[in-house]
Amino acid sequence: MTATATPARRLLRNPAGAFGLALTVLLVGAGLLAPLAAPHDPAAVGFDRLYAPPSWASPLGTDELGRDQLSRILYGLRASVLIGVAAVLMAAAVAVPLGLAAGYYRRVVDPVVSRLNDAVMAFPFLVLAVGLAAILGPSPVNAAVAIGVSQVPNILRVMRGEALRLSGEQFVDAAVAGGAGDAAVLFRHILPNAANALLVQVTVGIPAAIIAEAMLSFLGLGVQPPTPSLGVMLSSAQSTFAQAPWLAVFPGVALVLLTLGFNLLGDGLRDALDPKGAQR
């Protein structure tokens, strides 16, 4: 029997997973540290340098108001990460208890939760965001709520499935036979065993939420200009395609790298946490 490596070590040993982790840490870090890392004030307007192509002073060029694009991208990453992570964590806070309860109390809770879940899924996140914006007006918070709500069904489905699977395991029967109450069974025996699946689902949910945020901001339903956001930047770049293509390229590249990092990390985690991989 060979020694079994820990999941963390297996993740780092997988080149794609390690690269994903590095990319995620780098871009999330750059975003969170944007106030320190940005070379310029993202709001500083300069009419002497409108649409400046990349140069030493502004490595990624400047926009229609002469603002430094690199600095705006860093702040944009910050907004993307914060909204994306907040939306997914909100979703998890709702979906985890509901999903566990639905999978465990199959007769009473499951039918109710499952129908509600179906109803939520019937609203694509953009439609939900459109509805919220129509009622409450467009704002980053409303965008985050819409994204969060649309992430609930995915996490809920995974947690319900895990609770359903685990409640059929004999160790749950053994715990019940040993006098464990419902709370002990759910939180001590089922949740820890469902934690891996939750972690993976959250890790793949975040890039989806980040893309969703960018999409909403692009449409004008999320972060509002002049606050820097990757979606807003791409939206305004649309009209100046021909003269300043770098304004459409770089924010998109930043977005792709950020989501790619999370997706690679998610895949790496999935493999590293797979019990079948543990024996290898």
Binding site: A214, L234, T259
Partner: peptide
């Protein structure tokens, strides 16, 4: 992986 990571509106722009 690329298909998942590239937002379709940016792909459209490009």
């Amino acid at each position: 992986l690329l298909g998942l990571s590239v937002p379709n509106f940016w792909l459209g722009l490009m």
